[in-house]
Design a protein around this nucleic acid. Structure first.
Length: 289
DNA sequence: AACGTAACCAACCGCCACTCT
DNA sequence: GAGAGTGGCGGTTGGTTACGT
């Protein structure tokens, strides 16, 4: 596959020991060598590339460095809400097929997506004390997290005056049950949905003056960022499927009937809650259920 | 300021599938 | 068809940074 015997670089027969292969973080010089070599000769045939370029690295290491870091079209920086939504959706479809998922996020690498999943998504599953592949967690993602992200994306585009420009990736996604329509039954104002039977397919949103969509993006924030900074206090949007017959929240997690219920089985957010918050949260829960 | 912990992410490892000889 | 070499993928690890006490 790699064209043995091709390329004509003199050191092709050297063993790894002879090469005295380097490991660990790449230096700037190594990066430069790799980039220059690929600019001249193109990528591929990584083992011979590594040898011919004079890099004391394995072909695999060179390939990884190029694909995950040096490639000019690699996109760096925070995963946007839009990308988060896409990752959640595609993962629910394909599972841990990181490279396949990455193909749908231009500039993002499978490694980056994998890291995002492991550090952010699995963290929430852990906090919820359930398996990341469990139905409960998938439901939580689908009915709570993903609609939340949709809200944020739409609010952001509205705020930037580009309400006409719904992100294209969103258009390819299934119609999520909007958070707000879920909570309508509970009579809790949050984000006013502009939904009528006529336009429900487009489920456009407007935000109230007092409600600002959180700049923070995850389940934890959704549950916990309460009356601070104008957010609706946590569990206002539980779909019926997530309510137990007794009205307690998300019975799938089988929380003990203690104050823990307030936290959904998760640890409270760091230093952002006090007893007043907890009391308010409980009041809302009682009203709702 | 010092220390401990958590979060993040680049890099490595092992496995499998594919291609070439 | 068998074996070797390689690329690609997903899982894991370890170093670094950020944050809290």
């Amino acid at each position: 596959m790699d064209g043995h015997g091709r390329g004509g670089c003199s050191s092709e027969t050297q063993s790894e020991e002879e090469m005295d292969l380097r490991r660990g973080p790449w230096t700037m010089e190594e990066d430069l060598i790799l980039v220059n070599y690929i600019a001249d000769h193109g990528e591929g045939r990584w083992n011979s590339l590594a040898r011919c370029a004079g890099l004391k690295r394995t072909g695999k290491s060179c390939r990884l460095r190029w694909l995950n870091y040096l490639r000019p079209d690699v996109r760096r920086g925070n995963i946007t809400p839009e990308e988060q939504l896409l990752i959640l959706e595609l993962h629910s479809r394909w599972g841990n097929r990181w490279s396949k998922i990455a193909q749908h996020l231009p500039g993002r690498t499978d490694n980056e997506i994998k890291n995002y999943w492991r550090t952010r998504v699995q963290k929430h599953a852990k906090q919820l004390k359930c398996d990341v592949n469990s139905k409960q967690f998938k439901d939580a993602m689908r009915y709570l997290w993903m609609p939340r992200l949709v809200e944020r994306i739409r609010a952001a585009s509205a705020a930037s005056g580009s309400t006409q420009n719904t992100p294209t990736t969103l258009q390819n996604l299934p119609a999520y049950q909007p958070l707000t329509s879920i909570c309508n039954d509970f009579g809790v104002p949050q984000v006013k949905p502009n939904i009528t039977p006529e336009n429900s397919s487009t489920d456009s949103f407007v935000t109230t003056n007092t409600h600002v969509v959180s700049p923070i993006s995850d389940l934890t924030d959704y549950y916990f960022h309460g009356n601070h900074n104008g957010f609706q206090t946590a569990p206002v949007s539980c779909p019926e499927s997530l309510l137990s017959p007794s009205g307690s929240f998300y019975h799938g997690f089988e929380l003990p009937p203690t104050e823990q219920n307030v936290w959904f089985g998760m640890d409270p957010p760091e230093n952002t809650w006090n007893m007043e918050d907890i009391w308010l949260l409980q009041q809302q829960q009682q009203q709702m259920c």
